[in-house]
Simulated scan of single mutants.
Amino acid sequence: MRLLHTSDWHIGRSLHGTDLLAEQEAVLGALADVVAAESVDVVLVAGDVYDRAVPSADATAVLSRVVARLRRAGATVVLTPGNHDSARRLGTFSELLAVGGLHVRAETSRLDEPVLLSDEHGDVAVYGLPFLEPELARFELGVTTARSHEAVLGTAMDRVRADLFLRPGTRSVVLAHAFVGGGVASDSERDISVGGVDLVPASVFDGVDYVALGHLHRPQTLSPRVRYSGSPLAYSFGEAGQDKQAWLLDLDASGLADVRAVPLPTPRPLSVLTGTLSELLADPAHGDAVEHFVSARLTDPVRPADPMRALQTRFPHCVHLEWTGSGAVSDGRSYQERLRGRGDLDVAGEFVRHVRGVPAGAAELALLGRALTAADRDEAAR
């Protein structure tokens, strides 16, 4: 049996306010091409299908079209909710969806009931563990003393192993959404920890043939049988240049036979550009980034006027701007400390200096003074 391990689709996510649905549908649709080219039997989605608990109508439509493409390509789909999803919403009509080849494993109380698939070697049990929030899962699992992800996941895996014990000779795959020891985080994952209780040792998953992990956005191998696929798209500029992939795994008669990476396309790359505004607008070295999502770090000593508008004349997909010029360096005092005890004109002038990195000129201060005087007159007339 051949399976494709993916996770963290985050359908509906934006990048600094820019909609990514078109890019998401493009890369997720490409999974159907992998299914057809590699004769994939099962596609696994290990949590964070959506980016929020209540996805938009457009996001649900993208998921519907993507799953339809995967099914037409010949794959069964098994997915679980992550910490971004609402398990209850995602699991709506799950029994009916299973008839059509989409298996949503969203109920904590039924996590030891696998999706049973078969090939020429016998059965394969696919267990989908929804994201287990300790404060909720400990009651659903009947272990009220469990306060950590390790404790609730350990209980969940005990139930999985107990079910497997009753299925001798059955090969097994587990989907889980967690921060497992040895994994390296990115800056685009939502924290699921309180005081470090999120960290789970990989040994929790002992006893199964393959563990398809979700939550961390870069592909990682914790052991030959425990892996993160990572997200199919880069969701922060900290992931710029990161190669995205899925894991293609084969199960033979004895269990896990082979795992290899399958690269995924990048509909629109991310680039971080550093320089003065004039350099970024003119330097031919940045020509490749014209159609990329761009984060610009401006080094001008004085903050330029309306720099985003200027940058978007060359980089129409520039979505983030940071000014790191010398004028942006603080003198060590907080903004509040610098303003304490100062008059309205001083406060307005300090705001100009804070934003632009240079003091307001005489003409600007005169204009600000006239505006403040007019505002005082209007206030007194009320």
Results as ranks from 00 to 15, higher is better:
375 A>F: 06
108 T>M: 10
247 W>K: 03
338 R>S: 04
74 G>C: 05
179 F>N: 13
27 V>S: 06
324 T>Q: 15
37 A>D: 12
9 W>T: 10
48 D>E: 10
371 A>G: 07
165 F>Y: 09
247 W>A: 02
7 S>V: 02
187 D>V: 01
26 A>K: 13
52 R>P: 06
281 L>H: 00
310 A>C: 06
126 V>K: 08
285 A>W: 11
220 Q>L: 01
158 D>Y: 02
302 V>L: 07
371 A>D: 00
226 V>T: 14
111 L>V: 11
51 D>M: 11
5 H>I: 01
311 L>Y: 10
100 G>T: 12
118 S>V: 07
285 A>H: 12
36 A>N: 08
235 Y>T: 00
165 F>R: 13
353 R>N: 05
28 L>C: 08
282 A>D: 14
169 G>L: 01
166 L>Y: 03
211 V>W: 14
222 L>C: 11
217 H>M: 04
275 G>H: 05
350 E>C: 05
86 S>I: 07
198 D>K: 06
361 G>R: 02
17 G>L: 13
63 L>H: 02
2 R>H: 09
378 D>V: 11
201 P>L: 08
27 V>G: 06
295 S>G: 09
354 H>M: 06
190 R>E: 03
104 V>P: 04
262 V>A: 05
11 I>R: 15
207 G>Y: 11
40 V>S: 06
297 R>K: 05
376 D>I: 04
382 R>W: 07
130 P>S: 04
107 E>V: 12
287 G>I: 10
318 C>L: 05
38 E>K: 15
233 L>M: 11
253 A>G: 13
36 A>W: 09
355 V>R: 15
193 S>N: 08
244 K>L: 05
323 W>G: 08
230 G>Y: 04
359 P>Y: 09
107 E>A: 15
271 S>Y: 13
34 V>L: 04
111 L>A: 13
138 R>H: 08
173 V>R: 13
108 T>A: 13
11 I>C: 09
300 D>Q: 13
113 E>Y: 10
16 H>R: 09
350 E>W: 11
348 A>P: 00
25 E>W: 03
279 E>Q: 15
288 D>L: 09
160 V>Q: 01
129 L>K: 15
276 T>F: 04
13 R>L: 01
224 P>D: 04
268 R>N: 01
200 V>S: 11
8 D>V: 04
182 G>C: 05
154 G>R: 09
144 T>E: 15
256 L>C: 04
289 A>W: 07
119 D>I: 02
223 S>F: 01
371 A>V: 08
319 V>W: 01
226 V>P: 01
320 H>S: 13
347 V>I: 15
56 S>I: 03
297 R>A: 02
285 A>S: 14
